[in-house]
Deep mutational scan, measured.
Amino acid sequence: MSAKKSPEELKGIFEKYAAKEGDPNQLSKEELKLLLQTEFPSLLKGPSTLDELFEELDKNGDGEVSFEEFQVLVKKISQ
């Protein structure tokens, strides 16, 4: 996936994966893993990378990643 996506496209991608289980407005760690493996495969170099990335993105510590938290990752990789 190209990092150059419109905000609407990014929101659609986020919602597609977030709706798989639990809260449709939040990504669980498994949903984030699936999204990254599919859309940004070069970001995941191993299991520790996912854990570190999830911890970094989950700013409020609720165990899930909101769209706002996800946007931090998108901004970081599009620079």
Rank of each mutant, 00 (worst) to 15 (best):
Leu73Thr: 06
Glu8Ser: 04
Leu10His: 03
Phe54Cys: 11
Glu31Ile: 13
Glu15Gln: 13
Glu64Asn: 09
Gln79Leu: 10
Gln26Trp: 13
Ser6Gly: 05
Asp51Ala: 09
Leu32Ile: 15
Leu44Val: 12
Leu43His: 09
Lys76Val: 02
Lys20Ile: 05
Gly63Arg: 09
Gly63Phe: 04
Leu36Tyr: 02
Leu73Arg: 01
Glu52Ile: 08
Glu9Cys: 03
Gln37Phe: 10
Gln37Tyr: 04
Ser28Pro: 09
Gly63Met: 10
Leu53Tyr: 08
Glu55Pro: 12
Met1Phe: 02
Lys33Ile: 07
Met1Cys: 00
Leu73Trp: 12
Pro7Asn: 07
Phe40Leu: 08
Lys29Ser: 11
Ile13Ala: 02
Ala19Val: 07
Phe14Trp: 05
Asp58Pro: 06
Ser66Arg: 08
Glu69Phe: 02
Tyr17Ile: 01
Glu55Asp: 13
Lys4Trp: 01
Glu8Tyr: 05
Lys4Phe: 11
Leu35Pro: 00
Lys45Pro: 11
Asp51Gly: 08
Asp62Asn: 07
Tyr17Asn: 01
Glu21Asn: 13
Pro47Ile: 08
Glu64Val: 06
Lys11Glu: 07
Glu55Met: 11
Ser78Pro: 15
Lys29Asp: 11
Lys16Gly: 02
Tyr17Trp: 10
Ala3Gly: 05
Gln79Asp: 02
Tyr17Phe: 11
Gly22His: 05
Thr49Met: 05
Ser28Cys: 06
Asp58Tyr: 11
Glu8Ala: 07
Pro41Arg: 07
Tyr17Met: 03
Gly22Gln: 02
Tyr17Cys: 01
Gly63Asp: 11
Leu34Trp: 10
Asp23Asn: 10
Glu9Gly: 04
Asp62Cys: 03
Pro47Thr: 15
Lys75Pro: 02
Ile77Gln: 05
Gly46Leu: 12
Gln37Val: 11
Ile13Val: 04
Ile13Phe: 02
Gly22Asn: 03
Ala18Trp: 01
Asp62Val: 09
Glu9Leu: 06
Val72Leu: 11
Ala19His: 10
Lys75Arg: 06
Ile77Lys: 03
Leu43Val: 14
Glu55Ser: 09
Leu43Phe: 10
Glu55Asn: 05
Leu53Thr: 13
Leu27Trp: 00
Lys76Met: 02
Glu31Cys: 03
Glu21Phe: 15
Asp51Ile: 05
Lys20Ala: 04
Ala18Met: 03
Glu39Asn: 04
Val72Ser: 08
Glu9Asn: 09
Lys4His: 11
Leu73Val: 10
Lys76Glu: 04
Lys76Tyr: 01
Glu68Met: 08
Glu15Phe: 12
Glu56Thr: 11
Glu8Asp: 04
Glu8Met: 12
Ala19Phe: 07
Ala18Pro: 00
Glu31Leu: 08
Leu43Asn: 05
Asn60Ile: 11
Gly46Gln: 11
Leu43Ala: 12
Asp23Cys: 06
Asn60Ala: 15
Leu73Cys: 15
Thr38Ala: 13
Met1Gln: 00
Gln26Ala: 07
Lys16Asp: 02
Phe14Leu: 00
Val72Asp: 06
Ala3Tyr: 15
Glu8Gly: 07
Thr49Cys: 04
Ala19Leu: 12
Pro7Lys: 07
Glu69Thr: 10
Pro47Phe: 10
Glu52Tyr: 04
Asp51Leu: 06
Ser6Pro: 01
Ser2Cys: 05
Ile77Phe: 14
Pro41Leu: 06
Glu15Gly: 07
Asp51His: 05
Leu36Asp: 00
Gly46Pro: 08
Ile77Gly: 04
Gln79Glu: 15
Phe14Met: 00
Glu69Gly: 14
Asn60Gly: 13
Ser6Asn: 03
Leu57His: 09
Gln37Met: 04
Val74Asn: 11
Gly61Ala: 09
Leu50Asp: 06
Pro47Lys: 05
Glu55Leu: 14
Ser28Trp: 01
Lys20Ser: 05
Glu31Ala: 04
Lys5His: 03
Val72Ile: 10
Leu34Ser: 08
Glu69Leu: 11
Glu21Gly: 09
Pro41Phe: 10
Val74Tyr: 14
Leu27Cys: 12
Leu10Cys: 00
Ser6Gln: 06
Gln71Asn: 07
Ile77Asn: 09
Gly46Asn: 13
Phe14Ser: 00
Ser48Asp: 04
Leu10Arg: 01
Glu15Asp: 08
Ser66Phe: 04
Ser42Pro: 12
Gln26Cys: 05
Ala3Gln: 10
Leu57Val: 06
Gly22Ala: 06
